[in-house]
């Protein structure tokens, strides 16, 4: 008996164990929440130190980015992210990791065509479509607010 493409797809679905979604959701929620709470904690400390809001808004992401970059460089971040999933990808930590990791990976191809050319390999699309969306949103906002 020969097996059709659809029958095989059914077999594949049955044979391939699905990702443990609920477990992943919970872990992502907890780790993501923890990162955000840490960021908020930093903001509160800075506010208590009488630092202006505009500076706090810059300081908090900078600190998160630096911590992520260090954790990525020492090979710890991917181990956390393997469990945390979206919990580490969605906050700014994911963005920082997506730039530092290819920068490290392609060091062997040189500073310009290696690190330089590949640094935004993963973050590039986010920047391109993020900027494009911001422009569209800006135009709508401009027209709507007139």
């Amino acid at each position: 008996m020969s097996i059709t493409g659809n029958q095989y797809n059914e077999m594949v679905k049955k044979a391939s164990p699905p990702s443990p979604k609920i477990k992943n959701f919970i872990k992502a929620f907890l780790v993501g929440g923890l990162i955000c709470a840490f960021g908020e904690g930093l903001a509160q400390i800075f506010k208590a130190l009488d630092i202006s809001k505009i500076k706090v808004d810059a300081l908090v992401p900078i600190i998160l980015i630096v911590i992520t970059a260090i954790l990525t460089a020492i090979g710890v971040f991917d181990k956390i992210a393997r469990h945390a999933g979206a919990g580490t990808i969605v906050p700014i930590t994911g963005f920082a990791n997506s730039i530092v990791s290819p920068a490290m990976e392609f060091q062997s191809e040189g500073r310009i065509l290696g690190t330089g050319a590949n640094m935004f390999k993963i973050a590039g699309p986010v920047i391109v479509y993020g900027s494009a969306t911001a422009i569209i949103y800006g135009i709508i906002y401009y027209i709507a607010s007139r």
Binding site: S19, A73, I80
Partner: peptide, 17 residues
């Protein structure tokens, strides 16, 4: 991994299969 997938230190999850 470098040629076919993501950088080693990139934090992603792979499915159980």
């Amino acid at each position: 991994e470098k040629q076919f997938r993501m950088p080693l230190e990139y934090g992603n999850q792979s499915p159980p299969y």
